[in-house]
């Protein structure tokens, strides 16, 4: 059983500790260090955005926390336990949805409970419940290919959260959506997050997105990725879309943009993804 059952309820879950972590990608001659000697911590319940240019290793780090990539050095623990492989305790949402095309929405969401041996009736009820929470009631019988991009990501989030993970890891989940849908999805995500408070690590290169969502922003430099600044955001919750015109928001945005500014001739690095492959 991977699901925390006996955990002391007074003890908050979702504490991530990254200590001097290095991660190498690629084979033999083409190997390179995507993350080197990185340290930071996420406290339970926090919503942290990792912000950085393409190829800085932020998604690689996320993949390591999820357990899909092995770390080469250092220590990586979640709630004190070293990460040894993928687990439903550490749910991950990718940029492109990974819903099973052959399963209807409801059965996609019920996949985690099914793997835990939950009965059909019960897991379907649980799936319908969480689908209602993400605003997809009435779409239980659809196949993923029949949904829009935004709806697919909602299903993806529901499928991860039904496992009540200790941490929610998101790799530019709205990066492939159009601007309007992306803004809507950011608000949807915050609503869900209020209903199911989960420690969240959200990787993005969109400054507005990070400022709108996060309690805290970790800004990384280009490869080899280093933490340039660890920024705590003062904005109150619940947040509304008007926030983006707030004076303090604009000031912080200018500040972060300054941090991310790269020299003119800096090479554009290929995007890495949490599974370690470089996308074409």
């Amino acid at each position: 059983m991977n699901i925390r059952v006996a955990d002391d309820l007074t003890h908050a879950v979702g504490c991530i500790d990254v200590t001097h972590v290095s991660i190498s990608l690629g084979e033999e001659a083409e190997a390179f260090e995507a993350v080197s000697d990185l340290s930071f911590a996420v406290t339970p319940g926090e919503f942290v955005c990792i912000l950085g240019p393409s190829g800085c290793g932020k998604s690689t780090l996320l993949g390591a926390v999820a357990g899909h990539l092995k770390i080469g050095g250092g220590q990586l623990t979640v709630d004190g336990k070293p990460v040894l492989g993928p687990s439903p305790d550490r749910g991950i949402v990718f940029q492109q949805h990974t819903l099973f095309p052959w399963k209807r929405v409801r059965d996609n969401v019920a996949f985690g409970p099914k793997m835990r041996g939950v009965g059909k009736q019960e897991r379907r009820r649980a799936a319908d419940q969480i689908l209602q929470l993400v605003g997809l009631s009435g779409f239980e019988h659809f196949y993923p290919s029949q949904l829009s991009g935004g709806m697919q990501q909602r299903v993806e989030i529901a499928r991860v959260l039904i496992n009540r993970p200790r941490v929610l890891l998101m790799d530019e989940p709205f990066g492939a959506l159009d601007a309007q849908t992306r803004n809507m999805m950011q608000e949807v995500l915050l609503d869900i997050w209020t209903e199911i408070p989960t420690t969240t690590v959200f990787v993005t290169h969109d400054i507005d997105e990070a400022l709108f969502l996060a309690d805290r922003i970790v800004v990384m430099s280009a490869r080899p990725g280093r933490i340039v600044e660890d920024l705590r955001l003062p904005f109150a919750r619940p947040r509304v879309s008007d926030l983006v015109t707030d004076v303090e928001f604009v000031r912080l945005k200018r500040h972060v943009r300054g941090l991310l500014r790269q020299p003119e001739k800096a090479p554009q690095l290929a995007r890495l993804d949490p599974l370690g492959v470089q996308e074409a």
Binding site: S87, F94, F100, L275
Partner: peptide
């Protein structure tokens, strides 16, 4: 798609389950 397999593992799928629930379909 290896992303589907990775996702299934992250959701708690065992190798046997992944064979029948992901690879076969």
């Amino acid at each position: 798609d290896r992303r589907l397999v990775a996702s299934a593992r992250s959701l708690g799928g065992t190798s046997t389950a992944i064979l029948f629930e992901v690879v076969l379909p």
